[in-house]
């Protein structure tokens, strides 16, 4: 065995708040995001988690990857459970014990759990919500969600002889969260991990409900080389398809500017879920429609 990959000079694996040995696919953007979030948040955290890849790969009995006190209940309710955790800490005089982080995938956040999420935001609980947006229900085999992008092919909204995939674009979840009048909303990407961690740290200094949505590629569902997880995430941002911004008390206070704008093809061609757009005849028109979405984002969020 090569000296440099030897396991001999092993140091204890202690630093990470999400331990290795979890069963995420190689190159999983969601677990990368979770590790970045939890490491930024530090030790004093109580976490809740929705059903989904994040939970399934990390908490199979008799092991758990989570270092902090952590609870998974159901697909819909990490936010309501977190509300209960917060209420309990208050009632027990333990409110300074920990920051509370509620986590869910895009499916949990934008679809089945949106009611519970809205309730938590409206009630003003002191909880940071993190949406891991890998743009489909990955855990159950890549089905479309409310955050699946326009014309991506998923197993329940596949491209086909008369279909280009999903007929609508991503639900504007950050705006929906912000519309609750909460103090902090941000989008982030595993492609820009320092920014991501900065936002988590900042969010945890703010009292009240916080919402961070993290774009995280899924090599399995997006059909890309696992080595390209970071690249794919970065290109998404550079096209304008995934705007990165902060909204404080409903007002956009920062955006990540696009240094060199890239055409959406650069993003689409990296991934199998968009292959039909580049292969099928008539696809050029569809690509134009996606380019229009990117351009609209650039205008709306002043990305350039």
């Amino acid at each position: 065995m090569n000296e440099t990959t030897s396991t001999k000079k092993k140091e204890p694996i202690e630093e990470s708040q999400v331990a290795p040995g979890h069963r995420a696919c190689a190159g999983c953007g969601e677990l990368l995001a979770a590790r970045l979030v939890m490491n930024a948040a530090g030790k004093n955290v109580i976490a809740t988690c929705a059903t989904g890849c994040l939970e399934v790969v990390s908490s199979a009995y008799p092991q758990s990857a989570w270092k902090m006190p952590w609870i998974h209940s159901l697909f819909e309710n990490p936010t309501a459970v977190a509300s209960g955790v917060e209420a309990a800490l208050k009632a027990l005089g333990r409110e300074n014990e920990a920051n509370i982080i509620a986590q869910g995938g895009d499916g949990s956040t934008a679809d089945i759990g949106i009611g519970c999420l809205s309730g938590m935001l409206e009630r003003g609980h002191n909880v940071l919500y993190v949406c891991y947006d890998n743009e489909a229900y990955m855990n159950t085999g890549v089905q479309r969600s409310g955050l699946t992008p326009f014309e991506a092919s998923t197993t329940t909204a596949p491209s086909g002889k008369i279909s280009w995939g999903k007929t609508t674009d991503k639900k504007p979840m950050p705006e929906i969260a912000a519309a609750h009048g909460i103090p902090y909303v941000a989008t982030a990407s595993v492609g820009y991990y320092a920014d991501l961690q900065k936002k988590v740290k900042k969010a945890l200094t703010i009292k009240g409900p916080k919402y961070i949505q993290i774009h995280c590629p899924c090599p399995l569902g997006w059909i890309h080389d696992p080595a390209l997880t970071i690249k794919v995430a970065q290109v998404a941002v550079q096209t304008g398809l995934i705007p990165i911004f902060e909204m404080e008390n409903g007002v956009i206070t920062s955006v990540r500017k696009i240094v060199k704008k890239r055409p959406v093809e650069d993003y689409l061609k990296l991934q199998g879920r968009f292959r039909h757009l580049l292969k099928k005849s008539g696809g050029e028109d569809e690509v134009k429609r996606i380019q229009a979405i990117a351009d609209q984002n650039i205008e709306k969020y002043h990305l350039i």
Binding site: V56, P62, W66, P69, I71, E97, A98
Partner: peptide
């Protein structure tokens, strides 16, 4: 946080 455990396993 004094005695962290994981609840709600698979």
């Amino acid at each position: 946080t004094k005695n962290p455990v994981t609840f709600g396993i698979l």
